[in-house]
C-alpha cells in the first residue's frame, strides 16, 4: 500500500484506469505536457501520448462539447475544467447536452464521461478560483456530482465515475490536494456513487459535510471533546444523487441535524437536505434541522476571504446551538 495525497491518488487512479482501458482520454487546458496547473495529470501525456492526454485550445465549450462527441463515438473522455469558476462557458454543454443525451435519444446514446474540476476557497487565489457551485450541477437531472475528502475516496470515487455509463462531475477539494496523506491500496477498487460514509458514530446530532470541509468538521468535533456531545459525522461523498437513506436513518437516531457547506447558504445543498429530513424524519426531530453555509456574498479576494471561510469554531458553535435548542 502506498501513502498518497488526494492529488496523488487522483493521478494514480487516472494512470491505473488509462493503462487498463485504451478508450480513456484526458483533455483540458494544460493537462497534457504540463500535467495541469495543479499537476494532477502530471506524467500521463509522457506515458500515454498526445492523442490520449490532450492539451486543448483554451475553450471550455469545446472541451465539454467535444467530450460529448467522443463519448458517442467509442471513447471515455475525462476532461478538466481548470477551476470550477471557469466552467460557465462549458456549462451550456453540460446542461443542454450532456445531461440530456440519454433521455433525448431514448437511451441510444449514453455518455460515459467525467468532468473534473477543482472547487472551493481557502487557497488565497484570484477571482473566479474559489467557488463552490455544487447546486449548479446537483439541480440538473441527468448529471451526477461526487466530491471526495480523502485520498482513499478520491481513488474509489474516480474509478466509479469513470466506469459510470452517465456523465459524472468530479469536484476536487483543491484546498486538500496536498493537505495530508493516507494509505491507498494499489488494487483497483471502487467507492459506490450515491453512498455516504459514516465517519464516526454518535447519538446526539448528525453532522453532514463533504470535501474541503470534512477536516474542519473533524476539528470541530475535537473542540467539543469536553462537552459531552456525541456527534455522528457523515461524509456525504456524492451530492447528486445524495444518500438520503443513510442521512435520514442517522437523523431518526440522533433527532438533530446540521449540514455544513462552503456553498452559498440560500438555495444551497443544505436547503435540499433539510427539506428531505423534514419530509422523512419530522417526528423524530428534537431541534430544527440546521445549515451552516457560506454567506450569500461574492466570495472575497484573499484579504477578505477569512470573513467567508467556515472555521471549526463556527461549526462547533453551531453544533452546540442545535444540541442545546
Amino acid at each position: 500500500m502506498a501513502v498518497m495525497t488526494i492529488l496523488g491518488a487522483i493521478n494514480h487512479t487516472l494512470d491505473q484506469q488509462m493503462e487498463k482501458d485504451d478508450s480513456i482520454v484526458l483533455l483540458g487546458e494544460d493537462v497534457g505536457f504540463e500535467g495541469g496547473v495543479f499537476r494532477v495529470t502530471k506524467g500521463l501525456q509522457q506515458k500515454y501520448g498526445k492523442d490520449r492526454s490532450i492539451d486543448t485550445p483554451l475553450a471550455e465549450a469545446a472541451i465539454i462539447g467535444s467530450s460529448i462527441g467522443m463519448a458517442m463515438n467509442g471513447l471515455k473522455p475525462i476532461s478538466e475544467m481548470q477551476f470550477s469558476g471557469f466552467m460557465f462557458d462549458g456549462y451550456n454543454q453540460l446542461v443542454s447536452h450532456a445531461a440530456r443525451m440519454r433521455n433525448r435519444t431514448r437511451g441510444t446514446y449514453n455518455l460515459p464521461m467525467v468532468v473534473r474540476m477543482p472547487y472551493g476557497g481557502g487557497i488565497r487565489a484570484l477571482e473566479h478560483h474559489s467557488e463552490s457551485l455544487e447546486v449548479l450541477f446537483a439541480h440538473i437531472p441527468g448529471l451526477k456530482l461526487v466530491i471526495p475528502s480523502t485520498p482513499y475516496d478520491a481513488k474509489g470515487l474516480l474509478a466509479s465515475a469513470i466506469a459510470d455509463p452517465d456523465p459524472v462531475i468530479f469536484f476536487e477539494p483543491k484546498r486538500l490536494y496536498r493537505a495530508f496523506k493516507q494509505e491507498v491500496p494499489e488494487k483497483d477498487y471502487k467507492v459506490e456513487i450515491g453512498k455516504a460514509r459514516v465517519v464516526q458514530k454518535g447519538d446526539d446530532i448528525t453532522v453532514v459535510a463533504w470535501g474541503a470541509l470534512m477536516p474542519e468538521a473533524i476539528k470541530a468535533i475535537k473542540l467539543l471533546e469536553d462537552q459531552d456531545i456525541s456527534v455522528e459525522l457523515i461524509d456525504l461523498r456524492t451530492i447528486a444523487p445524495w444518500d438520503r437513506k443513510t442521512v435520514v436513518e442517522s437523523v431518526k437516531k440522533t433527532g438533530r441535524f446540521l449540514v455544513v457547506h462552503e456553498a452559498y447558504t440560500s438555495f444551497g445543498p443544505g436547503a435540499e437536505m433539510i427539506s428531505v429530513i423534514n419530509e422523512q424524519a419530522f417526528l423524530y426531530l428534537e431541534a430544527p434541522p440546521t445549515r451552516l453555509g457560506g454567506a450569500d456574498i461574492t466570495i472575497p479576494l484573499p484579504k477578505g476571504e477569512h470573513h467567508f471561510i467556515i472555521t471549526p469554531e463556527q461549526i462547533a458553535d453551531k453544533i452546540k446551538d442545535v444540541v442545546k435548542f
Partner: peptide, 13 residues
C-alpha cells in the same frame, strides 16, 4: 453547440 459534438466524434474517429 452541436459543432463541438461533431469535433469530438471526429477526434474519436
Amino acid at each position: 453547440s452541436q459543432i463541438n459534438h461533431a469535433a469530438g466524434i471526429a477526434y474519436a474517429s
